[in-house]
Amino acid sequence: MITYECRSLRTLADEERWPELLGLYRESRAVGAALRGESQGAAETAPLGHLIAYGAPPELAARLFDPDGGPGTTATTADHDSGPLWEVLATRHTWRRLAPLLGPEPVRRLVRHTRILLGEQLGPAAEPDPEGVPPALEPWELAARQPDALVREYLPKGGARRALLTLPAGLEGLGPVELPERGEQVMGLAATRLLATTVPWVTARCVRGPGPAAAAQLTTARRVTGGHVSFGAVYPALLQAATERPWQGSAEGRLALWRLLAAMTGADTVSVPEVNALVARLRCFTWQEPDDELRFLHLALEDPATGLSWALSGARYDP
C-alpha cells in the first residue's frame, strides 16, 4: 500500500506534477480497494483525488474517471472528499471543455447538470437527458438562484464552502397563523415516498386539503408563525437539503427534485410543461418551530388542481 503525506502531495500539486499525482492516485486506490474494500480504498485516496480534480488541466483531471488505469483505479460517482470528485471537476471547467473528455455516462450526466446549475448555457453542446430533465434552468429555478448555495465552492487544497439555507429563512413576510384541523392523510402516493427519500431527515405527509392543514399534521402547535412564499424561494433550500452529505452533489439534487415534481403531477416520467404548470400553481406554506436551531425545513406544497398538499418538516443538529 502506498502511503503519502498530504504536505508532499500538495507540494507535487504546487509543482503541477499532475501525471505523477494521477499515477499515485490510481495505484493507491487500487491497492486500498483490494486490501480494505472499495469504499475504504476510495476514502483513503479522496483527498488526492480532490487535488487533481481541482487543479489539474481538464485533459488530465477527467482521467480520474477513465477506466484505462485498470481495475480499482477509477473514481466513481460515489468517490468524495468534501464533495463528489465529479462535482469538484465540474466547478473548474466549462462543459465545452469537459464534454469531449468524459466517457462514463453517469459522470457525464452529473457534470452536465452541475454546469447547468452554475448557469452555463450549453447551447448546441447540450445532450438529451435520459429522464427528460431540461438542459437549462427553468425560470422558477432561476428565480432565487444562489450559486454559492446551490453548488459548493471548493477550495484548492481540500474542503468546501456553502451558504446554509433553511425554511423559513427568516421572519420577514411571516406572521401569526391559526392552523386548521389536520387534513385527511392520503397514503401510498409515489410523490410522498420520493419526498421522504429526497430529504431523509424530514417527516413527510400528504393530505387532502390546503397547505396549512398539511402543516398541522407535522406540528403540535395550533398557532404558528408562518406564511406563503414562492416556489422560486423554496427551490434552493429544497435542493440543498437533498444534498447535504459530502457524497451528494447538487446535480443529484436537481434530478431528484424534478422526479419529485413529476410524481406530484401523477406522471411516471418527467414532462417539462406539466412540471412547469404544477410549479406555477403550487402554494408554498412555511412555518417556524420553537426549537429551530441550525438546519431546519418546514414546508407544505399545496396543489389547488388536485386538492392535495404535501408537507415536510424536520431539523438537523449534526454538522
Rank of each mutant, 00 (worst) to 15 (best):
L150Y: 04
V151E: 02
E87G: 01
A233D: 15
P106T: 02
L85F: 04
Q146C: 11
A160E: 02
M187E: 15
E127C: 11
V107E: 09
G37T: 12
D81E: 02
D303F: 12
E105L: 12
L137T: 10
L195G: 10
G249Y: 01
P47E: 03
P57I: 10
P47W: 09
W310E: 11
L24R: 15
H50R: 07
L294Q: 11
S8H: 12
G307L: 08
R97Y: 00
W18I: 10
A256E: 06
A237R: 04
A242G: 14
L24V: 13
P57H: 09
L174F: 00
T76F: 04
R97L: 13
W18Y: 08
L155V: 00
L218P: 09
L35H: 14
R281G: 05
A43H: 07
Q217S: 10
L98D: 03
H228N: 13
G72R: 13
V207D: 08
A62C: 09
C284P: 14
M264I: 11
L117S: 07
T265M: 09
A169G: 15
T45W: 12
L257Y: 04
E131G: 02
V107I: 14
Y54W: 03
Q240C: 03
V177S: 03
L35A: 15
L21M: 13
L255Y: 01
V199G: 05
A143F: 02
W95A: 13
G72E: 00
T76S: 15
E15Y: 06
P106F: 02
L51K: 04
L64V: 06
L164R: 10
I2T: 09
F231D: 12
G183T: 08
L179G: 08
L150P: 15
A214M: 09
R36I: 14
R112S: 11
A214K: 09
L118E: 05
D318M: 07
G103M: 11
R162Y: 05
E127M: 14
A277S: 13
R223N: 13
A242R: 05
A241K: 03
G119S: 07
S82Q: 03
E244G: 04
P67T: 07
G159H: 01
G232L: 08
G158E: 02
M187I: 15
T77P: 14
P290T: 04
G37M: 14
G266N: 06
P139G: 13
G227I: 05
G232R: 11
R162K: 05
L194A: 04
A262K: 04
G158Y: 07
T94S: 15
